[in-house]
């Protein structure tokens, strides 16, 4: 059970930022911001141990509002900064917030290699299926056939499945939720933060201003109702037939495995090297 927003807002939002925030009315990013601060508050973590890192985009604005240490980096490079922070100060809890364009287009290479290395980071990837901030161009997660400001006749590329990609690349924890399933999202963020190893949480979030408008999906309320209809718990998804799965999205924990993290293996290398030095071999 998480605390009320009434007390959490004062404790976890930055007092020198202008509210209401910059996002469009109803944008799912605000719901994720609430979820993140509730999860942080119930994690019991000391604020001074938490670092939020983001790239550029509407989603990149999120850490700016949270009263922890934060680094607002360049487009696509959030993970590289996060990696440096974690390696130099392993005690810090590093959470990276990225958009779908940020994480899978310009930063796609960083995502797969961060997953492969299994460094203890948490990546929150906001999937609004478009480049929100720059006006609704298609991103690597824009579905085939849907419209974008750069795909007026319909998109002719297939899309990435962010969760499947992270899983195959080697992430220790992969989960998916939507901003409509907010209670689930609160819990999954907490689980992702607590997990040792690279954890990815893909959050489907409506960008009604761009993706919704181009595809005539209505307001964010309509888009969230769509998520409600499409979302099914992974357990049920596993029992569904191919036909039933069409237009449905599995939600919940998709992968949770224990593997040595990069820092574990690195500590082992340091121990071996120190031993050899003592023996005078190097």
């Amino acid at each position: 059970m998480t605390g009320s927003n009434r007390t959490i807002v004062y404790e976890w939002l930055r007092h020198d930022k202008k509210f209401p925030h910059v996002w469009c009315p109803g944008c799912g990013l605000g719901i994720l911001l609430g979820s993140l601060v509730r999860a942080l508050s119930s994690s019991g973590l000391d604020k001074n141990r938490v670092v939020l890192v983001s790239g550029i985009g509407c989603s990149g604005r999120l850490p700016v509002y949270v009263d922890t240490a934060s680094v607002h980096t360049t487009h696509g490079r959030a993970l590289t900064f996060a990696l440096g922070i974690k390696l130099s100060k392993p005690d810090l809890v590093v959470i990276v917030v990225m958009g779908d364009g940020d994480a899978t287009a310009i930063g796609g290479n960083h995502l797969i290699h961060a997953a492969r290395r299994n460094l203890d980071l948490t990546a929150l990837i906001v999937n609004n299926q478009t480049y929100g901030m720059t006006g609704g161009q298609f991103s690597p997660t824009t579905p085939f056939g849907s419209k974008a400001s750069t795909a007026v006749f319909g998109h002719i590329e297939n899309s990435f499945d962010i969760s499947a990609l992270s899983e195959t690349a080697g992430a220790a924890f992969v989960a998916r939720s939507t901003v409509y399933h907010v209670n689930q999202m609160d819990n999954l963020i907490l689980q992702a933060i607590r997990k040792k190893g690279f954890s990815v949480l893909e959050v489907l979030s409506p960008c009604h201003t761009n993706f919704g408008r181009h595809n005539r999906l209505g307001s964010q309320v309509d888009m969230m109702k769509m998520y409600k209809k499409q979302g099914v718990p992974v357990k049920r998804w596993e029992q569904m037939s191919e036909k039933e799965r069409l237009d449905r999205i599995p939600l919940g924990v998709l992968t949770d495995r224990d593997m040595p993290t990069y820092l574990d293996s690195y500590a082992e290398v340091c121990r071996l090297a120190a031993g050899m030095r003592e023996e005078g071999k190097i």
Partner: peptide
């Protein structure tokens, strides 16, 4: 409360403010 992107609707008890009189204005954070 949870689905409000702007923290503009909340549910619960009003927080208790210790040792402040009702006339005194609320402190500005920063």
């Amino acid at each position: 409360e949870k689905l409000c992107p702007d923290f503009a609707i909340t549910v619960g008890e009003a927080p208790v403010i210790k040792g402040r009189s009702a006339e005194e204005p609320a402190p500005r954070a920063t």
